[in-house]
Structures are given as structure tokens and as C-alpha cells.
Design a protein around this nucleic acid. Structure first.
Lengths: 187, 187
DNA sequence: CGAGTGATGTCATTGACTGACATCACGATG
DNA sequence: CATCGTGATGTCAGTCAATGACATCACTCG
């Protein structure tokens, strides 16, 4: 065993989720989280930029994954098809994850304005990354922005729906269904 | 003259804008703003919930105004027409305002992640208010959400374009032009 | 063995934000 | 005219998020 327990960041993430769910975001201090994880508050800030970011670790990987899927979509795919592929690729991130965790996380975020702000900016960042990915595919700026925006909207709606569905439902199926609803709207 | 200079909130708003523009958001303390406005920091927090909110005063009125315009749209208007009326109504809020102020404010917000977060949540609130307004008109939930989202997107795009246009251009014209672009996209 | 490294702890400090309480012009009321 | 709220502000003390500077020490590599 090393000088310290391994995976301090992971312990901090779990401690934060547990405490936010139990006492609420405002009722939890960074010192509380650090104590529960067996480190000091200073170490918390070495792993996460601020008290909110601890709930959003992994969002960069999700984004990278989606952007990669977008880039790998066949050249002949329409912009919206490519975006759909990117959104579908996100499923791989959640299938392995316990639904329970996602639900508690969503509940905490919904209940805390500060966390909703952070989530919104993550979505905005995702949107602009997808837009850029489309531009790289030669899509016109207006179309790219609109397609990306629409794709992220589908992602959001599908994710919310998935959280409510029974546990057996796969998120990929919910995404496909949401995409179908979208095409019905514009038809 | 009363015991205190009148309109402390207004003085705080102006002082905040000036200092944020001059030294940046992070380089400005609440005490700085309060000093410049001739009050104490404690008074700042009696007028604004936090350091970011001082740049968003008036957003509730804008929202109310738009929701009202939505409600007053003719019964026979389509959802998107009603939303367009709401977005157009926002013009009355900016025509009187010095463009210069809006530009400096936008520059500060763009440069500061914390402020961009706040702006995003204001837009999200606006979206959900417009959605609710559409539901009150009997619009189906899916359509209402989509129309509101689209309307806010138009508002955002038009506002940004307006800031770049020469000073003589009216925001209402930019909004109308943006709405036209939108209908071109979906056609 | 000794130098270097990386993750952590310790300490001090700034600044956002809050609660409790005091102050005091002004307007109403008797 | 005296007094009695009332509302906007000041004062003070305190909590907690966040950051910089410096110390520590197991581990690794030469």
C-alpha cells in the first residue's frame, strides 16, 4: 500500500454525491466531503475546480466520445444523421452506470440552482463542440449550429425520459424513440 | 434630500458595470462596487442576491413583458407566431437603451464563465416561462417546448447580431430578419 | 545510497455571503 | 407638537469557498 489510499478523486466524488443527496448541496461543506474521503479540503480543490465540478467529472470524456462518433459518421450522412450518431454514442456511457446513481445525481442537480447553472454550461459546451465537429465535416454554419442545438435537445429529453423509465429500458432505445418523435414534429 | 441618496440599486448597477468592464469581474470586489456607489457591501447584498445578479437586474421585467405579449397574441395565431410576437416585444426593452451599454455588458459576460452560467439559466427560465404561456394557450406540450426553445434561440441570435450591427439598426428589424432566416431553414 | 518527483498536508489569507442588532430620517397618528 | 412605527442603511461578527506558499515523505530511478 502506498503512502495514501489510491483514487482520492473517486472517493471525493462518491462522498460528495452521498452528502449532497443526504444533506443537500448547501448543507454540505467541502471540509465535510474531504473528511468523508479521508483527505483535506485543500486536496479537494486539487482534484476539482470548485464545489460544483465534483458532480460533473467525466463530462469531458462524454463530450469527446460524442465528438468522435460524430467525426466517424459516414461521409454521406446528413448533418442530422451524424448528430444522431453522436447522441446515440452517449448511450455507452450510461449503460454500464447504475441508474440509481444517475437518478440521485439528477435529483440533486434539479434541487440546486448553482448546479443547474453548471449543467447548462456543460450542455452549451457540448453544443458548441458538436457544432465545431459539423463545421469540420463541411456543414454550413447555420445548419451546423441548428443541428447541434437540436441534437443536444434530444439528448436532454431522452436522458430525462430514461431516468423515469423502468430499469430494464436501455438508454439507446429511448434516444432512438426521441429521435423518431423529433422527425415526427418536423414532418 | 433624504437621509440617503436615492436609487442605491441603480448606483450599484452602474458602478458594477463600470468596474467589471474596467478591471474584469474577478478583479472587482463587492466592496469596490459598494464604495463606488457610496454604500456598504452589506447593502449590496440587500439589493442583489449575489455578485453576478447585479448584471441581470431587469431580466424579470423583460420576461414578464414577453410572456404578456405571448398571452395577448390573437387566438388564431399559430404557436410559432405567438412566440414570434413575444420575441418581437422584447425590442421595446432595448430600443431605449444605449447600445453601448449592451455591448459592454455582453463583453463582460462573454469574458466571465460565472456570468455566462447565469445568463444561461436566465435563458432557461425564459424558455420555461414561454413554454408555460403556450400551454395556457392550449398548445400541446411537445410543440410548446419546441416552439419556446426555438423562440429563445431566435432571441439570442438576433440580440447578438444586433450588437454587431451599426447603431442605426433597430433590434426589431434584426429579429424579423432572424425569424425569416429560421423559416428558410425549416422550409 | 541520494536526488528528484508527485500527491498530500499545513498555514495564512482573501473575499463572498449571512444573521443579529443598532441607527435614524421621515411620515403618520393622536 | 410629541411620539411612534417603518424602512433603508450601517456595524459587527462569523462561516465557508477558494487560492498561494511552503513543508513532508513514500516511492522511483540512476
Amino acid at each position: 500500500m502506498g503512502r495514501w489510499e489510491p483514487d482520492a478523486a473517486g472517493r471525493l466524488r462518491e462522498a460528495a454525491m452521498a452528502l449532497y443527496a443526504e444533506r443537500g448541496f448547501d448543507g454540505t461543506t467541502v471540509a465535510d466531503i474531504a473528511d468523508a474521503a479521508g483527505v483535506t479540503a485543500r486536496t479537494f480543490f486539487r482534484h476539482f475546480a470548485d464545489k460544483r465540478e465534483v458532480l460533473f467529472a467525466g463530462s469531458e470524456q462524454l463530450e469527446q466520445h460524442m465528438v468522435l462518433a460524430l467525426a466517424e459518421a459516414p461521409t454521406e450522412a446528413t448533418p442530422m444523421e451524424a448528430v444522431a450518431a453522436a447522441v446515440l454514442a452517449s448511450a455507452e456511457f450510461f449503460d454500464g452506470m447504475r441508474r440509481d446513481y444517475s437518478r440521485r445525481r439528477a435529483a440533486v442537480i434539479t434541487a440546486t440552482p448553482e448546479l443547474r447553472e453548471r449543467e447548462l454550461i456543460k450542455m452549451a459546451t457540448l453544443t458548441s463542440s458538436l457544432t465545431k465537429g459539423l463545421l469540420d465535416r463541411g456543414v454550413a454554419p447555420d445548419v451546423a449550429a441548428l443541428a447541434a442545438e437540436t441534437g443536444v435537445a434530444v439528448f436532454r429529453v431522452a436522458f430525462e425520459r430514461w431516468l423515469v423509465e423502468p430499469d430494464s429500458v436501455l438508454i439507446a432505445d429511448v434516444i432512438r424513440s426521441t429521435l423518431k418523435t423529433l422527425s415526427g414534429l418536423t414532418a
